[in-house]
Design a protein around this nucleic acid. Sequence first.
DNA 1: GGCGGTCACTTGAAGCTGCAAGCAACTCCT
DNA 2: AGGAGTTGCTTGCAGCTTCAAGTGACCGCC
Lengths: 158, 158
Amino acid sequence: MSTAREVPSATRWLTQDETAAWLPLLRVGQLLPQAMDRQLRKEAGIRHAYYQVLVHLSAQPDRTLSMGELARLAATSPSRLSHAVAAMEERGWVTRRPCSTDRRVQYAGLTDAGLSLLERVAPGHVADVRRLVFDRLTEDEVSQLRSLTLKLLPSLDA
Amino acid sequence: MSTAREVPSATRWLTQDETAAWLPLLRVGQLLPQAMDRQLRKEAGIRHAYYQVLVHLSAQPDRTLSMGELARLAATSPSRLSHAVAAMEERGWVTRRPCSTDRRVQYAGLTDAGLSLLERVAPGHVADVRRLVFDRLTEDEVSQLRSLTLKLLPSLDA
DNA sequence: GGCGGTCACTTGAAGCTGCAAGCAACTCCT
DNA sequence: AGGAGTTGCTTGCAGCTTCAAGTGACCGCC
């Protein structure tokens, strides 16, 4: 990551230790989503983005969320979600209906077909997560991982 | 991530602790690349994928790498790199020339324009990395982060 | 030599992503 | 009331990513 040595203003380049952490973090950040995506596509024919929509809707008591809430939970942009839900609606996995009290809001709801797709796909996905992540880590390391990622989230969410 | 409770074969769902680590990890894995991309686009007009190409080429003594090596270093697919380098060549940041001993191989080389772009862009990028990641962590945490990500890499690289 | 297999890379098409723009509905303020 | 500003969501488009297929070039083996 270090490139030029002399720059007009005093740039605080990464230290050696920081670089040694940054490079693999960057790599994990690239490869992990790729791996999730590939596995779900090959074995289930859907993207990870779709899977997340299914998961979050299924976690609601009424299988329903407003587009805004759903976007927030899935860490995606409104635009992206709009496109994704449109495509998933066409395939019969979710439905959309307007909110009665605030007509700007749209609710996305999981259909039976969507739920059964999720149930068919989830075991393979969980197995993959286990294989790629949790089978490699001790209990303590999992705890460290949780603590570290939670520390990084606030600045990324904003 | 937990969805159905009863599935044909015995699916080992994630424990509570694992889920508590998985959700933020997934989120970081999504948001971190997004954030890198947004910052570089806004302030430099290039994608993070392009930036990585520039960085890896600039780190070579002769500013040159074969497409294969470059793809491996940047953790990207050959196809993606091919498209990217084609676009960057058109903008004058890299050049391509065939290898003299193995005519399947192409070398990508960083131009002066490419290097000066990188030097202009790098400080802002490093500042962003610092703001998003290293300013939030103690020295010990950085070390934990390095150790954890290094443990996850092997299974992802394969 | 020459033929199957692999390797390095490129290409094209389909689908997704991000941004900017747009629209209607809601809120606030006077 | 009513206008300015904000919110929730959608749309269109340009650009990127992915997969599958294709093209040469190299290797090993008979």
